[in-house]
Design a protein around this nucleic acid. Structure first.
Length: 564
RNA sequence: UGUCCUGUAGUGUAAUUGGCAACACGUCUGACUCUGGAUCAGAAGAGUCCAGGUUCGACCCCUGGCAGGACAACCA
Protein backbone atom coordinates (compact mmCIF):
# COMPACT_ATOMS: atom_id res chain seq x y z
CA UNK A 1 0.00 0.00 0.00
CA UNK A 2 2.65 2.41 1.01
CA UNK A 3 4.64 1.52 -2.04
CA UNK A 4 1.69 2.55 -4.17
CA UNK A 5 1.51 5.80 -2.32
CA UNK A 6 5.19 6.27 -2.92
CA UNK A 7 4.56 5.50 -6.54
CA UNK A 8 7.52 3.20 -6.94
CA UNK A 9 7.99 0.66 -9.63
CA UNK A 10 6.14 0.65 -12.88
CA UNK A 11 4.74 3.88 -14.08
CA UNK A 12 3.81 4.47 -17.68
CA UNK A 13 4.44 8.19 -17.48
CA UNK A 14 8.03 7.82 -16.42
CA UNK A 15 10.81 7.98 -18.96
CA UNK A 16 12.46 4.65 -19.55
CA UNK A 17 16.01 3.89 -18.57
CA UNK A 18 18.34 2.34 -21.09
CA UNK A 19 17.79 -1.18 -19.79
CA UNK A 20 14.05 -0.86 -20.14
CA UNK A 21 14.58 0.29 -23.69
CA UNK A 22 16.78 -2.71 -24.45
CA UNK A 23 14.30 -5.11 -22.93
CA UNK A 24 11.36 -3.57 -24.70
CA UNK A 25 13.22 -3.79 -27.99
CA UNK A 26 14.03 -7.44 -27.29
CA UNK A 27 10.44 -8.21 -26.46
CA UNK A 28 9.30 -6.46 -29.58
CA UNK A 29 11.71 -8.41 -31.75
CA UNK A 30 10.71 -11.64 -30.02
CA UNK A 31 14.33 -12.21 -29.14
CA UNK A 32 13.62 -14.88 -26.55
CA UNK A 33 10.00 -15.27 -27.37
CA UNK A 34 9.38 -12.21 -25.26
CA UNK A 35 10.77 -13.94 -22.20
CA UNK A 36 12.61 -11.97 -19.50
CA UNK A 37 14.75 -13.74 -16.94
CA UNK A 38 17.22 -11.85 -14.77
CA UNK A 39 19.39 -12.92 -11.92
CA UNK A 40 20.92 -11.42 -8.81
CA UNK A 41 24.35 -13.00 -8.32
CA UNK A 42 25.94 -12.07 -4.98
CA UNK A 43 29.16 -13.62 -3.80
CA UNK A 44 28.50 -14.94 -0.29
CA UNK A 45 31.47 -13.18 1.22
CA UNK A 46 29.89 -10.17 2.89
CA UNK A 47 26.70 -8.42 3.79
CA UNK A 48 24.47 -6.67 1.30
CA UNK A 49 24.44 -2.88 1.28
CA UNK A 50 22.37 -0.10 -0.21
CA UNK A 51 24.33 -0.42 -3.45
CA UNK A 52 23.22 -4.03 -3.75
CA UNK A 53 19.71 -2.86 -2.98
CA UNK A 54 19.81 -0.79 -6.14
CA UNK A 55 20.89 -3.84 -8.10
CA UNK A 56 18.27 -6.03 -6.45
CA UNK A 57 15.50 -3.55 -7.16
CA UNK A 58 16.72 -3.28 -10.72
CA UNK A 59 16.97 -6.99 -11.43
CA UNK A 60 13.78 -7.99 -9.69
CA UNK A 61 11.96 -4.82 -10.70
CA UNK A 62 12.74 -5.20 -14.39
CA UNK A 63 11.61 -8.81 -14.40
CA UNK A 64 8.43 -7.88 -12.56
CA UNK A 65 7.68 -5.06 -14.93
CA UNK A 66 8.01 -7.25 -17.99
CA UNK A 67 6.31 -10.32 -16.66
CA UNK A 68 9.51 -12.22 -16.07
CA UNK A 69 11.30 -13.83 -13.17
CA UNK A 70 14.54 -13.48 -11.29
CA UNK A 71 16.89 -16.13 -10.00
CA UNK A 72 19.02 -15.76 -6.94
CA UNK A 73 22.40 -17.23 -7.68
CA UNK A 74 25.26 -17.30 -5.26
CA UNK A 75 28.52 -16.85 -7.05
CA UNK A 76 30.47 -19.24 -4.90
CA UNK A 77 33.50 -20.10 -6.98
CA UNK A 78 36.10 -19.23 -4.39
CA UNK A 79 35.87 -21.52 -1.34
CA UNK A 80 38.47 -19.66 0.67
CA UNK A 81 36.45 -16.46 0.79
CA UNK A 82 32.90 -17.62 1.06
CA UNK A 83 30.69 -18.80 3.85
CA UNK A 84 27.07 -19.85 4.53
CA UNK A 85 26.80 -17.19 7.21
CA UNK A 86 26.61 -14.75 4.34
CA UNK A 87 24.25 -16.87 2.29
CA UNK A 88 21.62 -16.65 4.99
CA UNK A 89 21.96 -12.95 5.62
CA UNK A 90 21.74 -12.25 1.91
CA UNK A 91 18.55 -14.23 1.55
CA UNK A 92 17.03 -12.54 4.56
CA UNK A 93 17.86 -9.09 3.24
CA UNK A 94 16.43 -9.72 -0.22
CA UNK A 95 13.19 -11.00 1.23
CA UNK A 96 12.99 -8.14 3.66
CA UNK A 97 13.31 -5.77 0.72
CA UNK A 98 10.21 -7.44 -0.60
CA UNK A 99 11.46 -9.64 -3.41
CA UNK A 100 11.06 -13.33 -4.11
CA UNK A 101 13.36 -15.26 -6.38
CA UNK A 102 12.12 -17.88 -8.78
CA UNK A 103 15.02 -20.22 -7.98
CA UNK A 104 17.83 -20.36 -5.52
CA UNK A 105 20.93 -21.49 -7.38
CA UNK A 106 24.64 -21.67 -6.74
CA UNK A 107 27.44 -21.42 -9.26
CA UNK A 108 28.74 -24.52 -7.50
CA UNK A 109 25.64 -26.36 -8.75
CA UNK A 110 27.25 -26.10 -12.16
CA UNK A 111 30.75 -27.33 -11.33
CA UNK A 112 30.20 -30.62 -13.18
CA UNK A 113 28.86 -28.96 -16.29
CA UNK A 114 31.58 -26.31 -16.19
CA UNK A 115 34.19 -29.04 -15.94
CA UNK A 116 32.76 -30.87 -18.93
CA UNK A 117 32.76 -27.70 -20.94
CA UNK A 118 36.37 -27.09 -20.01
CA UNK A 119 37.29 -30.48 -21.44
CA UNK A 120 35.35 -29.58 -24.54
CA UNK A 121 37.30 -26.36 -24.96
CA UNK A 122 40.54 -28.26 -24.49
CA UNK A 123 39.55 -30.72 -27.17
CA UNK A 124 38.68 -27.87 -29.51
CA UNK A 125 42.07 -26.35 -28.87
CA UNK A 126 40.69 -23.36 -26.99
CA UNK A 127 42.28 -24.11 -23.64
CA UNK A 128 45.56 -25.36 -22.29
CA UNK A 129 47.25 -26.26 -19.05
CA UNK A 130 49.96 -23.83 -18.07
CA UNK A 131 52.83 -24.80 -15.76
CA UNK A 132 54.11 -21.29 -15.26
CA UNK A 133 54.23 -19.91 -11.76
CA UNK A 134 51.84 -17.23 -10.68
CA UNK A 135 54.66 -14.73 -10.92
CA UNK A 136 55.62 -15.82 -14.43
CA UNK A 137 52.06 -15.60 -15.58
CA UNK A 138 51.77 -12.13 -14.17
CA UNK A 139 54.95 -10.91 -15.79
CA UNK A 140 54.22 -12.55 -19.12
CA UNK A 141 50.78 -11.04 -19.29
CA UNK A 142 52.52 -7.82 -20.24
CA UNK A 143 51.16 -4.45 -19.29
CA UNK A 144 48.41 -2.23 -20.37
CA UNK A 145 50.67 -0.74 -23.03
CA UNK A 146 52.83 -3.75 -23.88
CA UNK A 147 51.72 -7.07 -25.29
CA UNK A 148 52.23 -10.21 -23.24
CA UNK A 149 54.44 -13.20 -24.02
CA UNK A 150 53.04 -16.57 -24.86
CA UNK A 151 53.55 -19.33 -22.37
CA UNK A 152 56.06 -22.04 -23.32
CA UNK A 153 53.25 -24.52 -22.54
CA UNK A 154 50.77 -22.85 -24.78
CA UNK A 155 51.01 -25.34 -27.61
CA UNK A 156 50.67 -28.62 -25.84
CA UNK A 157 48.56 -31.18 -27.62
CA UNK A 158 44.90 -31.57 -26.76
CA UNK A 159 45.67 -35.04 -25.41
CA UNK A 160 48.37 -33.79 -23.10
CA UNK A 161 46.20 -30.92 -21.93
CA UNK A 162 43.31 -33.22 -21.27
CA UNK A 163 45.51 -35.60 -19.31
CA UNK A 164 47.03 -32.81 -17.27
CA UNK A 165 43.65 -31.19 -16.60
CA UNK A 166 42.19 -34.50 -15.43
CA UNK A 167 45.14 -34.96 -13.12
CA UNK A 168 44.64 -31.44 -11.81
CA UNK A 169 41.14 -32.42 -10.92
CA UNK A 170 42.33 -35.70 -9.42
CA UNK A 171 44.47 -33.78 -6.98
CA UNK A 172 47.86 -34.73 -8.30
CA UNK A 173 49.17 -31.21 -8.10
CA UNK A 174 49.65 -28.66 -5.41
CA UNK A 175 47.96 -25.27 -5.25
CA UNK A 176 49.40 -22.97 -7.86
CA UNK A 177 51.34 -25.66 -9.68
CA UNK A 178 49.16 -25.54 -12.78
CA UNK A 179 46.22 -23.63 -14.17
CA UNK A 180 43.90 -24.09 -17.07
CA UNK A 181 43.92 -21.14 -19.44
CA UNK A 182 41.81 -20.11 -22.38
CA UNK A 183 43.87 -19.76 -25.54
CA UNK A 184 42.92 -16.41 -26.95
CA UNK A 185 45.52 -13.74 -27.65
CA UNK A 186 48.48 -12.76 -25.51
CA UNK A 187 48.74 -9.45 -27.34
CA UNK A 188 45.11 -8.44 -27.03
CA UNK A 189 44.62 -4.80 -26.03
CA UNK A 190 42.05 -6.00 -23.51
CA UNK A 191 44.19 -7.60 -20.82
CA UNK A 192 41.39 -9.94 -19.88
CA UNK A 193 41.66 -11.70 -23.19
CA UNK A 194 45.38 -12.47 -22.77
CA UNK A 195 44.78 -16.15 -22.14
CA UNK A 196 42.64 -15.74 -19.02
CA UNK A 197 42.79 -18.36 -16.33
CA UNK A 198 39.76 -20.63 -16.27
CA UNK A 199 40.65 -22.99 -13.43
CA UNK A 200 43.05 -22.83 -10.53
CA UNK A 201 43.96 -25.47 -8.00
CA UNK A 202 42.68 -24.82 -4.50
CA UNK A 203 42.84 -27.66 -2.03
CA UNK A 204 40.18 -26.23 0.17
CA UNK A 205 36.81 -27.35 1.39
CA UNK A 206 33.87 -25.67 -0.28
CA UNK A 207 30.86 -24.73 1.84
CA UNK A 208 28.56 -26.66 -0.48
CA UNK A 209 30.58 -29.16 -2.46
CA UNK A 210 32.82 -30.15 0.43
CA UNK A 211 36.03 -31.79 -0.78
CA UNK A 212 34.65 -32.94 -4.10
CA UNK A 213 36.75 -30.45 -5.99
CA UNK A 214 40.27 -29.18 -5.71
CA UNK A 215 40.03 -27.10 -8.86
CA UNK A 216 37.70 -24.14 -8.99
CA UNK A 217 36.54 -22.03 -11.93
CA UNK A 218 37.33 -18.35 -12.10
CA UNK A 219 34.59 -15.76 -12.26
CA UNK A 220 34.95 -15.22 -15.99
CA UNK A 221 34.71 -18.87 -16.75
CA UNK A 222 31.76 -19.42 -14.42
CA UNK A 223 29.52 -16.43 -14.65
CA UNK A 224 28.45 -16.30 -18.26
CA UNK A 225 27.97 -20.04 -18.46
CA UNK A 226 25.92 -20.01 -15.28
CA UNK A 227 23.73 -17.36 -16.85
CA UNK A 228 23.52 -19.47 -19.95
CA UNK A 229 22.63 -22.65 -18.08
CA UNK A 230 19.74 -20.80 -16.45
CA UNK A 231 18.71 -19.23 -19.75
CA UNK A 232 19.12 -15.77 -18.32
CA UNK A 233 18.05 -13.27 -20.96
CA UNK A 234 19.44 -10.09 -19.45
CA UNK A 235 22.46 -10.35 -17.21
CA UNK A 236 22.73 -7.00 -15.52
CA UNK A 237 25.88 -6.00 -13.68
CA UNK A 238 27.89 -2.95 -12.75
CA UNK A 239 30.21 -0.96 -14.99
CA UNK A 240 33.48 -2.53 -13.94
CA UNK A 241 32.42 -5.72 -15.72
CA UNK A 242 32.19 -3.93 -18.99
CA UNK A 243 35.73 -5.05 -19.88
CA UNK A 244 34.70 -8.61 -19.15
CA UNK A 245 31.89 -8.69 -21.68
CA UNK A 246 34.04 -9.81 -24.64
CA UNK A 247 35.19 -12.75 -22.57
CA UNK A 248 31.65 -13.44 -21.41
CA UNK A 249 30.63 -13.62 -25.04
CA UNK A 250 33.72 -15.58 -26.10
CA UNK A 251 33.04 -18.58 -23.88
CA UNK A 252 29.36 -18.67 -24.82
CA UNK A 253 30.25 -18.48 -28.48
CA UNK A 254 32.93 -21.17 -28.37
CA UNK A 255 30.71 -23.44 -26.34
CA UNK A 256 27.74 -22.70 -28.58
CA UNK A 257 25.34 -22.42 -25.67
CA UNK A 258 22.39 -20.19 -24.84
CA UNK A 259 23.43 -16.63 -25.60
CA UNK A 260 22.79 -14.68 -22.42
CA UNK A 261 23.75 -11.04 -22.79
CA UNK A 262 25.43 -8.83 -20.27
CA UNK A 263 24.50 -5.18 -19.70
CA UNK A 264 26.26 -2.78 -17.38
CA UNK A 265 24.96 0.10 -15.31
CA UNK A 266 26.68 2.53 -12.95
CA UNK A 267 26.78 1.40 -9.35
CA UNK A 268 25.35 3.53 -6.60
CA UNK A 269 27.56 5.84 -4.59
CA UNK A 270 26.29 7.76 -1.60
CA UNK A 271 27.81 10.88 -0.15
CA UNK A 272 29.27 10.60 3.36
CA UNK A 273 29.38 6.84 2.93
CA UNK A 274 31.78 4.10 1.97
CA UNK A 275 30.41 1.17 0.07
CA UNK A 276 33.27 -1.20 -0.57
CA UNK A 277 32.98 -4.55 1.17
CA UNK A 278 36.60 -4.30 2.18
CA UNK A 279 36.14 -1.00 3.95
CA UNK A 280 32.89 -2.02 5.53
CA UNK A 281 34.56 -5.14 6.84
CA UNK A 282 37.36 -3.06 8.24
CA UNK A 283 34.93 -0.85 10.13
CA UNK A 284 33.42 -3.95 11.68
CA UNK A 285 36.70 -5.65 12.47
CA UNK A 286 38.25 -2.57 13.99
CA UNK A 287 35.11 -2.02 16.03
CA UNK A 288 34.56 1.44 14.65
CA UNK A 289 30.94 0.35 14.52
CA UNK A 290 28.98 -2.16 16.58
CA UNK A 291 28.76 -4.69 13.78
CA UNK A 292 27.43 -5.24 10.28
CA UNK A 293 24.02 -4.11 11.44
CA UNK A 294 25.21 -0.99 13.18
CA UNK A 295 22.55 1.61 12.33
CA UNK A 296 25.22 3.84 10.83
CA UNK A 297 26.26 1.23 8.30
CA UNK A 298 24.93 1.40 4.74
CA UNK A 299 24.24 -2.32 4.92
CA UNK A 300 20.68 -3.49 4.44
CA UNK A 301 20.66 -4.92 7.95
CA UNK A 302 22.10 -1.66 9.28
CA UNK A 303 19.43 0.40 7.57
CA UNK A 304 16.77 -1.99 8.83
CA UNK A 305 17.98 -1.62 12.38
CA UNK A 306 18.22 2.10 11.93
CA UNK A 307 14.51 2.17 11.14
CA UNK A 308 14.46 2.29 7.37
CA UNK A 309 11.58 0.54 5.65
CA UNK A 310 11.74 -1.63 2.53
CA UNK A 311 9.33 0.81 0.92
CA UNK A 312 11.66 3.73 1.51
CA UNK A 313 14.62 1.85 0.08
CA UNK A 314 12.68 0.72 -2.96
CA UNK A 315 11.44 4.25 -3.50
CA UNK A 316 15.02 5.45 -3.26
CA UNK A 317 16.25 2.86 -5.75
CA UNK A 318 13.55 4.07 -8.07
CA UNK A 319 14.48 7.71 -7.67
CA UNK A 320 18.22 7.39 -8.19
CA UNK A 321 17.68 6.17 -11.71
CA UNK A 322 19.74 3.87 -13.87
CA UNK A 323 22.42 5.02 -16.25
CA UNK A 324 26.01 4.44 -17.23
CA UNK A 325 27.75 7.44 -15.82
CA UNK A 326 29.38 7.52 -12.43
CA UNK A 327 27.25 9.18 -9.82
CA UNK A 328 27.20 10.23 -6.20
CA UNK A 329 23.77 10.48 -4.68
CA UNK A 330 23.13 12.97 -1.90
CA UNK A 331 22.42 11.35 1.40
CA UNK A 332 19.57 13.85 1.64
CA UNK A 333 17.75 11.99 -1.12
CA UNK A 334 17.80 8.78 0.91
CA UNK A 335 16.46 10.70 3.88
CA UNK A 336 13.81 12.33 1.76
CA UNK A 337 12.58 8.90 0.66
CA UNK A 338 12.54 7.73 4.23
CA UNK A 339 10.54 10.70 5.49
CA UNK A 340 8.19 10.47 2.58
CA UNK A 341 7.28 6.97 3.68
CA UNK A 342 7.38 7.33 7.45
CA UNK A 343 5.48 10.60 7.53
CA UNK A 344 2.44 8.93 6.09
CA UNK A 345 2.44 5.71 8.05
CA UNK A 346 4.07 6.16 11.38
CA UNK A 347 2.31 7.19 14.59
CA UNK A 348 3.34 10.24 16.51
CA UNK A 349 4.44 10.30 20.11
CA UNK A 350 5.92 12.87 22.43
CA UNK A 351 9.39 12.55 23.86
CA UNK A 352 11.77 15.00 25.46
CA UNK A 353 15.43 14.46 24.76
CA UNK A 354 17.02 17.33 26.67
CA UNK A 355 14.65 17.96 29.55
CA UNK A 356 13.94 21.25 31.23
CA UNK A 357 11.59 21.12 34.17
CA UNK A 358 8.49 23.25 34.09
CA UNK A 359 6.25 23.77 37.09
CA UNK A 360 2.79 24.99 36.32
CA UNK A 361 2.19 26.97 39.44
CA UNK A 362 -1.53 27.45 39.09
CA UNK A 363 -2.20 23.80 38.37
CA UNK A 364 -3.42 21.88 41.44
CA UNK A 365 -0.84 19.76 43.17
CA UNK A 366 -1.27 16.00 43.02
CA UNK A 367 -3.68 16.32 40.20
CA UNK A 368 -3.39 14.80 36.78
CA UNK A 369 -5.63 14.32 33.81
CA UNK A 370 -5.67 12.63 30.44
CA UNK A 371 -5.67 14.55 27.21
CA UNK A 372 -6.54 13.34 23.78
CA UNK A 373 -3.87 13.25 21.11
CA UNK A 374 -4.02 12.37 17.43
CA UNK A 375 -1.84 9.45 16.47
CA UNK A 376 -1.17 10.50 12.94
CA UNK A 377 -2.49 13.68 11.37
CA UNK A 378 -1.72 12.18 7.96
CA UNK A 379 -3.85 9.15 8.59
CA UNK A 380 -7.14 9.43 10.38
CA UNK A 381 -7.47 5.67 10.70
CA UNK A 382 -4.51 5.67 13.07
CA UNK A 383 -6.91 6.95 15.73
CA UNK A 384 -6.25 8.74 18.96
CA UNK A 385 -4.68 8.09 22.30
CA UNK A 386 -4.73 9.62 25.77
CA UNK A 387 -1.68 11.22 27.30
CA UNK A 388 -1.29 12.18 30.95
CA UNK A 389 -0.75 15.75 32.05
CA UNK A 390 0.21 17.09 35.45
CA UNK A 391 1.62 20.05 37.34
CA UNK A 392 5.22 19.25 36.54
CA UNK A 393 6.34 18.58 33.03
CA UNK A 394 9.49 18.45 30.98
CA UNK A 395 9.94 20.47 27.87
CA UNK A 396 12.91 20.58 25.55
CA UNK A 397 15.75 22.83 26.66
CA UNK A 398 15.95 24.24 23.16
CA UNK A 399 12.34 25.31 23.39
CA UNK A 400 13.15 27.98 25.93
CA UNK A 401 15.34 31.02 25.61
CA UNK A 402 15.81 33.67 28.21
CA UNK A 403 16.73 36.27 25.62
CA UNK A 404 15.06 35.07 22.48
CA UNK A 405 16.03 36.40 19.07
CA UNK A 406 13.42 37.93 16.83
CA UNK A 407 11.86 34.95 15.19
CA UNK A 408 11.97 32.57 18.12
CA UNK A 409 8.41 31.29 18.41
CA UNK A 410 8.89 29.18 21.49
CA UNK A 411 8.86 29.81 25.21
CA UNK A 412 10.53 32.83 26.78
CA UNK A 413 9.95 34.96 29.84
CA UNK A 414 6.52 36.54 29.59
CA UNK A 415 5.71 34.64 26.43
CA UNK A 416 2.91 32.20 25.89
CA UNK A 417 3.07 28.96 23.94
CA UNK A 418 0.86 25.98 23.43
CA UNK A 419 1.74 22.64 24.90
CA UNK A 420 0.76 20.26 22.17
CA UNK A 421 -2.68 18.76 22.79
CA UNK A 422 -2.72 20.37 26.25
CA UNK A 423 -2.84 23.98 27.35
CA UNK A 424 -1.42 27.40 26.74
CA UNK A 425 1.25 28.23 29.25
CA UNK A 426 3.01 31.47 30.00
CA UNK A 427 6.46 31.69 31.51
CA UNK A 428 6.72 33.82 34.63
CA UNK A 429 9.93 32.87 36.38
CA UNK A 430 13.24 31.42 35.44
CA UNK A 431 14.89 29.49 38.26
CA UNK A 432 18.67 29.18 38.16
CA UNK A 433 21.28 27.37 40.17
CA UNK A 434 24.26 29.06 41.83
CA UNK A 435 26.16 28.90 38.54
CA UNK A 436 23.50 30.69 36.66
CA UNK A 437 22.23 27.65 34.78
CA UNK A 438 18.55 27.49 34.15
CA UNK A 439 17.17 24.56 36.08
CA UNK A 440 13.46 25.18 36.16
CA UNK A 441 10.71 27.34 34.78
CA UNK A 442 7.66 28.56 36.58
CA UNK A 443 4.70 28.94 34.32
CA UNK A 444 0.98 29.42 34.59
CA UNK A 445 -1.53 27.75 32.39
CA UNK A 446 -4.86 28.86 31.04
CA UNK A 447 -7.43 26.25 32.08
CA UNK A 448 -9.74 27.46 29.34
CA UNK A 449 -7.28 26.42 26.68
CA UNK A 450 -7.62 22.73 27.46
CA UNK A 451 -6.94 20.64 24.40
CA UNK A 452 -4.91 23.39 22.84
CA UNK A 453 -7.41 26.03 21.81
CA UNK A 454 -8.33 29.16 23.68
CA UNK A 455 -11.97 30.18 23.74
CA UNK A 456 -11.13 33.83 23.15
CA UNK A 457 -9.45 32.86 19.93
CA UNK A 458 -6.09 34.31 20.80
CA UNK A 459 -3.20 32.82 18.92
CA UNK A 460 0.14 31.66 20.10
CA UNK A 461 3.10 31.54 17.83
CA UNK A 462 4.52 28.28 18.94
CA UNK A 463 3.51 24.80 19.90
CA UNK A 464 5.97 22.73 21.83
CA UNK A 465 6.04 19.13 22.94
CA UNK A 466 6.27 17.98 26.52
CA UNK A 467 6.03 15.00 28.79
CA UNK A 468 4.49 14.75 32.26
CA UNK A 469 7.23 14.18 34.84
CA UNK A 470 5.43 11.71 37.11
CA UNK A 471 4.30 9.70 34.11
CA UNK A 472 7.37 9.89 31.92
CA UNK A 473 9.29 6.76 31.06
CA UNK A 474 13.03 6.77 30.68
CA UNK A 475 14.60 5.36 27.59
CA UNK A 476 18.02 5.20 26.06
CA UNK A 477 18.08 7.19 22.87
CA UNK A 478 20.80 6.75 20.30
CA UNK A 479 21.27 9.78 18.13
CA UNK A 480 22.92 8.75 14.91
CA UNK A 481 24.51 11.00 12.41
CA UNK A 482 26.47 10.35 9.26
CA UNK A 483 29.48 8.10 9.76
CA UNK A 484 31.84 10.41 7.92
CA UNK A 485 32.23 14.15 7.99
CA UNK A 486 33.78 14.10 4.54
CA UNK A 487 31.25 13.96 1.70
CA UNK A 488 33.63 11.73 -0.20
CA UNK A 489 35.38 9.52 2.36
CA UNK A 490 37.19 7.62 -0.40
CA UNK A 491 38.89 10.76 -1.55
CA UNK A 492 41.66 11.40 0.93
CA UNK A 493 45.14 12.75 0.19
CA UNK A 494 48.01 10.32 -0.41
CA UNK A 495 49.12 8.59 2.72
CA UNK A 496 46.11 9.62 4.76
CA UNK A 497 43.96 6.93 6.31
CA UNK A 498 40.49 6.92 4.78
CA UNK A 499 39.15 6.50 8.28
CA UNK A 500 40.53 9.89 9.26
CA UNK A 501 37.30 11.54 8.19
CA UNK A 502 35.11 9.46 10.44
CA UNK A 503 32.59 11.67 12.19
CA UNK A 504 33.38 11.61 15.91
CA UNK A 505 29.78 12.55 16.63
CA UNK A 506 28.13 9.84 14.57
CA UNK A 507 26.63 8.39 17.74
CA UNK A 508 25.43 10.18 20.83
CA UNK A 509 23.71 8.20 23.51
CA UNK A 510 21.39 10.08 25.80
CA UNK A 511 18.60 9.36 28.22
CA UNK A 512 15.30 10.60 26.95
CA UNK A 513 11.91 10.85 28.56
CA UNK A 514 9.06 9.42 26.62
CA UNK A 515 5.33 9.36 27.02
CA UNK A 516 4.03 6.25 28.79
CA UNK A 517 2.21 4.84 25.77
CA UNK A 518 5.63 3.97 24.39
CA UNK A 519 6.27 1.62 27.29
CA UNK A 520 5.26 -1.51 25.44
CA UNK A 521 6.74 -0.80 22.06
CA UNK A 522 8.54 -3.73 20.53
CA UNK A 523 11.69 -4.01 18.49
CA UNK A 524 11.59 -2.31 15.09
CA UNK A 525 8.42 -0.37 15.95
CA UNK A 526 8.67 3.06 14.39
CA UNK A 527 7.40 6.40 15.60
CA UNK A 528 7.72 10.04 14.95
CA UNK A 529 8.68 11.88 18.09
CA UNK A 530 6.87 15.11 17.44
CA UNK A 531 9.06 17.96 16.30
CA UNK A 532 12.19 15.82 16.70
CA UNK A 533 12.38 13.04 14.21
CA UNK A 534 11.71 9.43 13.39
CA UNK A 535 12.73 6.80 15.87
CA UNK A 536 12.59 3.06 16.04
CA UNK A 537 12.96 0.55 18.82
CA UNK A 538 16.41 -1.01 18.78
CA UNK A 539 17.13 -4.69 19.19
CA UNK A 540 19.14 -3.95 22.31
CA UNK A 541 15.84 -3.23 24.06
CA UNK A 542 15.14 -5.43 27.09
CA UNK A 543 12.21 -5.70 29.43
CA UNK A 544 14.10 -3.37 31.74
CA UNK A 545 15.41 -0.87 29.25
CA UNK A 546 13.92 0.65 26.15
CA UNK A 547 16.37 1.69 23.47
CA UNK A 548 15.41 3.96 20.59
CA UNK A 549 17.39 4.69 17.46
CA UNK A 550 16.99 7.98 15.74
CA UNK A 551 16.32 7.04 12.15
CA UNK A 552 16.26 10.60 10.86
CA UNK A 553 15.55 14.04 12.12
CA UNK A 554 12.60 16.04 10.94
CA UNK A 555 13.37 18.88 8.60
CA UNK A 556 14.29 21.70 10.90
CA UNK A 557 13.65 25.12 9.43
CA UNK A 558 14.35 26.83 12.69
CA UNK A 559 17.79 25.25 12.93
CA UNK A 560 18.47 26.67 9.51
CA UNK A 561 17.32 30.15 10.51
CA UNK A 562 19.19 30.00 13.80
CA UNK A 563 22.32 28.80 12.07
CA UNK A 564 22.49 31.90 9.95
C1' U B 1 51.10 5.43 -21.80
C1' G B 2 47.08 0.98 -24.65
C1' U B 3 41.82 -0.50 -24.80
C1' C B 4 36.94 0.34 -23.24
C1' C B 5 33.03 3.33 -20.79
C1' U B 6 31.14 8.18 -19.44
C1' G B 7 30.71 13.89 -19.66
C1' U B 8 23.34 17.91 -19.47
C1' A B 9 21.56 23.36 -13.22
C1' G B 10 24.59 21.97 -6.52
C1' U B 11 23.08 16.30 -6.94
C1' G B 12 20.71 12.73 -9.90
C1' U B 13 17.73 11.46 -14.16
C1' A B 14 15.09 13.13 -18.95
C1' A B 15 14.58 15.45 -23.83
C1' U B 16 9.09 12.42 -28.78
C1' U B 17 15.64 9.55 -31.66
C1' G B 18 18.01 16.33 -35.38
C1' G B 19 13.33 21.14 -33.79
C1' C B 20 17.16 25.95 -28.88
C1' A B 21 16.60 21.76 -22.21
C1' A B 22 12.14 18.88 -18.53
C1' C B 23 11.42 16.30 -13.75
C1' A B 24 12.98 15.03 -8.74
C1' C B 25 16.05 16.10 -4.47
C1' G B 26 18.51 20.36 -2.56
C1' U B 27 18.23 25.93 -2.22
C1' C B 28 15.17 30.49 -1.70
C1' U B 29 10.26 33.02 -1.19
C1' G B 30 5.13 33.10 0.27
C1' A B 31 0.36 30.75 2.05
C1' C B 32 -1.64 27.47 5.53
C1' U B 33 -1.07 24.80 10.01
C1' C B 34 -2.11 22.67 17.46
C1' U B 35 4.68 19.38 14.71
C1' G B 36 9.16 26.02 12.54
C1' G B 37 6.92 18.74 10.27
C1' A B 38 3.42 17.77 6.41
C1' U B 39 0.67 20.26 2.56
C1' C B 40 0.02 24.14 -1.20
C1' A B 41 1.82 28.08 -4.46
C1' G B 42 5.95 30.31 -6.62
C1' A B 43 11.27 31.59 -7.69
C1' A B 44 16.32 31.27 -8.66
C1' G B 45 19.74 28.03 -10.92
C1' A B 46 22.48 24.76 -16.86
C1' G B 47 22.47 26.81 -22.72
C1' U B 48 24.29 20.58 -22.55
C1' C B 49 33.15 19.52 -21.20
C1' C B 50 35.97 22.36 -25.25
C1' A B 51 37.07 23.38 -30.54
C1' G B 52 35.81 22.56 -35.32
C1' G B 53 32.44 20.18 -39.02
C1' U B 54 27.61 18.31 -41.33
C1' U B 55 22.61 20.59 -41.35
C1' C B 56 17.66 25.50 -42.39
C1' G B 57 18.40 23.65 -37.40
C1' A B 58 22.82 19.66 -32.98
C1' C B 59 22.42 17.74 -26.04
C1' C B 60 21.71 14.20 -30.04
C1' C B 61 25.53 12.83 -36.04
C1' C B 62 31.19 13.31 -37.63
C1' U B 63 36.45 14.78 -36.40
C1' G B 64 40.01 16.31 -32.87
C1' G B 65 41.02 17.54 -28.03
C1' C B 66 40.10 17.72 -22.59
C1' A B 67 38.22 15.59 -18.04
C1' G B 68 36.50 11.47 -14.96
C1' G B 69 36.06 6.13 -14.40
C1' A B 70 37.33 0.86 -15.43
C1' C B 71 41.07 -2.91 -16.72
C1' A B 72 47.69 -5.35 -15.81
C1' A B 73 44.37 -11.31 -8.41
C1' C B 74 45.37 -18.26 -9.67
C1' C B 75 39.05 -12.07 -6.36
C1' A B 76 34.04 -11.39 -7.77
Amino acid sequence: MASEELNTGTNEEKPKNFLEEIIEADIKSEKHGGRVLTRFPPEPNGYLHIGHAKSICLNFGLAQKYGGKTNLRFDDTNPVKEDIEYVNSIKEDIQWLGFNWANEFYASDYFDQLYLWAEELIKKGYAYVDDQSQEEIRVNRGTVTQPGKESPWRDRSAEENLDLFRRMRAGEFKDGEKVLRAKIDMAHPNMLLRDPIMYRIIHSEHHRTGDKWCIYPMYDYAHGQSDSIENITHSICTLEFDVHRPLYDWFIEKLEIFPSKQYEFARLNLSYTVMSKRKLLQLVQEKVVMGWDDPRMPTICGLRRRGYTPEAIRYFADKVGVAKRDNVIDLSLLEFCLREDLNKRVERRMAVLNPLKVVITNYPENQSEELEAINNPEDESAGKRMIPFSREIYIEQEDFMENPPKKFFRLAPGKEVRLRYAYFIKCNDVIKDENGNIVELHCTYDPASRGGNSPDGRKVQGTIHWVSIPHAVKAEVRLFDRLFSNPDPNNVPEGVDWKSSLNPDSLKVIEGLIEPSLQNASVLDKFQFERIGYFCVDSDTTSKKLVFNRTATLKDTWAKIAGK
